[in-house]
């Protein structure tokens, strides 16, 4: 039997074979345990691949855009307040009566104009805002990359200097230690000699107390040494 190729089967598995070849592949599968087995193997791999999941939305992306949106909202609200203030100010004459009588006609005539004006302000502001914040983001992005590289390079340099310093320190410590040891050895040698002489002297002094003659022989040897 002529088996379909691996290329055919991956297209089949990922639903990318055209209807005609899909049918013929399915038909082949019915009568071919060999292809069935290898397909099952691949299906198991595909299931396993799905075990490696990633968080739906990466935390930082969400946070960053959240901040931009919040900033936009705040600025829009402030602008809205300013726009309202600007528009209502000329509508606040001191005479209550005049105001009351004029209000109806004023609002009806002004409203479309206000709305239009407000909307235009909004749009301009929003576009400016988007520009500004997005420009900032683009710049930050590039800057971030640069800063990151710079910091890495700097780190490497600092570590290099530190290591060099450590090495120098180690070498000088080593020399110092050696000197100390030599000195110590010399001192210890002197000290030992002195101690030995003291011991010999002590033995000599204590000689008269010992009753045997052998003792005097050994003390003679000790003196000669």
């Amino acid at each position: 039997m002529n088996h379909p190729s691996g290329e055919d089967w991956v297209a089949f598995l990922y639903g990318e074979s055209d209807p005609e070849s899909h049918e013929s592949l399915k038909a082949h599968l019915q009568g071919c345990p060999q292809c069935q087995a290898s397909l099952d193997r691949w299906r198991a791999v595909m299931t396993e691949l799905d075990a490696w999941r990633l968080p739906r939305v990466p935390a930082r992306a969400r946070q960053r855009w959240g901040i931009v949106r919040a900033a936009a909202a705040v600025i829009l609200l402030v602008a809205l307040g300013a726009a309202l203030g600007r528009l209502t100010a000329p509508r606040a004459p001191d005479e209550e009566a005049l105001r009351a009588s004029l209000e109806a006609s004023l609002t009806s005539s002004l409203e479309p104009a206000i709305r239009q004006r407000l909307r235009r302000d909004f749009d301009e502001l929003a576009v400016e805002l988007a520009r500004a914040s997005n420009a900032a983001i683009a710049l930050r992005l590039a800057e971030l990359v640069r800063v990151f590289d710079a910091v890495r390079a700097e780190d490497r340099q600092v570590i290099g200097v530190l290591l060099e310093g450590l090495e120098l320190q180690r070498v000088s410590d080593h020399a110092q230690l050696r000197n100390d040891l030599v000195q110590l050895a010399a001192l210890t040698g002197d000290e030992l000699l002195r101690t030995k002489q003291d011991v010999v002297r002590l033995i000599l002094y204590s000689q008269p107390v010992g009753p045997t003659s052998e003792g005097s022989d050994s003390s003679d040897e000790g003196r000669m040494r």
Binding site: G6, W9, V10, R41, W42, A44, V45, T47
Partner: peptide
């Protein structure tokens, strides 16, 4: 065609690499 054959090769290799895990499952 190259992409598809790479895909089938990738699945084959993964089946070998993940062999013990797959058998257990």
């Amino acid at each position: 065609g190259t992409v598809k054959s790479r895909m089938s090769e990738a699945l084959d290799r993964l089946a070998r690499l993940l062999g013990p895990v797959l058998k257990e499952e």
